[in-house]
Computed example of a mutant assay.
Amino acid sequence: MSLTAVETLNREFLEIRCRILDLAAMLDRLERSDDTVADDPRLKRIHEAIDLLTKSASRNSSSDRAEQVQLTFSRPYDSAWLQNLKVRPR
């Protein structure tokens, strides 16, 4: 039996809040550092993922957020990945 949206929010609210606060604290630490990572592609992907979450939340239509975020951090599929990454088959 699946939970209602209210039951799910009641159960998950504090965990979601905690994770958002953790993320905010991590981004604050990056900004307060002596050097900068503004041009780092990893930070760009983090911001893309956050944007994706906020845009999909405002549309209230996407239930595949986890997949979309995962794809933000993934390489496109390359059928020749074994050769390109020099992986030896077992």
Rank of each mutant, 00 (worst) to 15 (best):
L71Y: 07
A66H: 10
P89H: 13
T72F: 01
S74G: 04
E12V: 01
V69K: 01
A66Q: 12
A66S: 11
S33L: 00
R42N: 14
R59W: 01
S79N: 13
K86A: 15
A57Y: 05
L9R: 11
E15C: 05
A57K: 08
L23R: 00
E7I: 04
S63L: 10
N10V: 12
K44V: 11
E12S: 10
Q70C: 09
D22K: 01
S56V: 09
R59S: 08
R19N: 14
R88A: 10
T8F: 06
D22I: 00
L85E: 15
S2H: 07
S56A: 06
A66T: 13
N60V: 03
D40R: 03
R65K: 12
D28P: 01
L30F: 03
R32K: 15
A49F: 00
T4F: 02
H47S: 03
T4G: 04
V87Q: 06
L3S: 07
P76W: 06
S61E: 08
I46M: 07
S58N: 08
L23P: 03
L43H: 11
T36P: 03
Q68D: 09
S74I: 00
Q70E: 13
P76L: 13
V87Y: 13
A25V: 02
A80M: 12
C18N: 13
I50M: 01
L53H: 02
R88K: 14
L85M: 10
L82I: 11
S63A: 07
S2Y: 03
V69I: 14
Q70T: 13
L71E: 15
Y77R: 15
M1A: 10
A25K: 06
C18P: 00
A5Q: 07
A66G: 08
T4D: 04
V69G: 02
N60Q: 10
S2A: 10
R11E: 08
N84Y: 02
